[in-house]
């Protein structure tokens, strides 16, 4: 079914992995946000009430972490920041304005995507560790009360950073037409690849030729 103008970017297994993380993230974020501020407590209705929200949230979080861990290990090697990446980040104004011609060439992922990758890793680890520390009725009692208080604070902060990051992630995927298709179908257009990820395009096309 693949047309000649398409390049494979994600395997079916990678895509499924990504969307499992995405679904679990949405559920974890909505159930967490219900407890974050009274203005969002109504979100607990989505989970069958406050008590169910409290019960389900940590399990959703842990499940999300496990799937994320697999995804992160799979994509780890593609996310090392290079010299060009630092330049790219320095020109963030051009990025937002869409002045792509002025930006240094991008590999499989641009510097923004890579940065988000590392932010996500930090946040996920922080959420897991602190989340367990104030998880009642099981684990919270094993930590000193001051640690539990700090854990709750850091958990809320890490959740904020992660949700903010994912909001940008979702918008970027929508903004750059053809990106969403990559994660949904696994295929991206040749021109899309050449324009947005020229170094990666070169790599994969050379591989094919040789």
């Amino acid at each position: 079914m693949s047309q000649p103008n398409e390049i494979e970017r994600y395997t079916a297994s990678q895509r499924s992995n990504h969307w499992m993380v995405a679904i679990l993230f949405i559920l974890a974020a909505l159930s967490g946000l219900a407890l974050f501020h009274p203005a969002l407590f109504w979100l607990s209705n989505l989970f069958g009430g406050g008590a169910w929200t409290r019960i389900l949230h940590p399990f959703l979080g842990v499940a999300m972490f496990l799937f994320f861990l697999i995804l992160a290990l799979r994509f780890w090697k593609h996310n090392h920041l290079t010299k060009n990446d630092r330049k790219w980040l320095g020109q963030i104004g051009d990025v937002i304005a869409g002045n792509d011609d002025k930006l240094p060439p991008v590999g499989r992922y641009n510097a923004g995507q890579k940065l988000l990758f590392w932010v996500m890793i930090l946040c996920m680890l922080a959420l897991l560790v602190t989340g367990v520390m104030f998880w009642r009725p099981w684990f919270a009692a094993s930590f000193s009360i001051d640690l539990v208080r700090l854990a709750a604070l850091i958990h809320a902060f890490a959740a904020w950073v992660l949700i903010a990051g994912i909001m940008v992630h979702i918008y970027a995927a929508f903004w750059v037409k053809g990106t969403m298709r990559g994660m949904l179908t696994g295929k991206v257009g040749r021109a899309w690849a050449r324009h947005h990820h020229p170094e990666w395009y070169q790599e994969v096309t050379e591989e094919k030729r040789s």
């Binding site: 103008n5 937002i96 304005a97 869409g98 792509d100 011609d101 918008y171 929508f174 903004w175 750059v176 037409k177 053809g178 257009g189 040749r190 021109a191 899309w192 050449r194 324009h195 947005h196």
Partner: peptide, 21 residues
């Protein structure tokens, strides 16, 4: 940002060389 810039689109031209942003 979307209202101002719209979506970023690369046309998949038959002629590979002439992709336009």
């Amino acid at each position: 940002h979307f209202i101002k810039r719209g979506r970023k689109e690369v046309h998949e031209d038959e002629d590979d060389q002439l992709a336009i942003v």
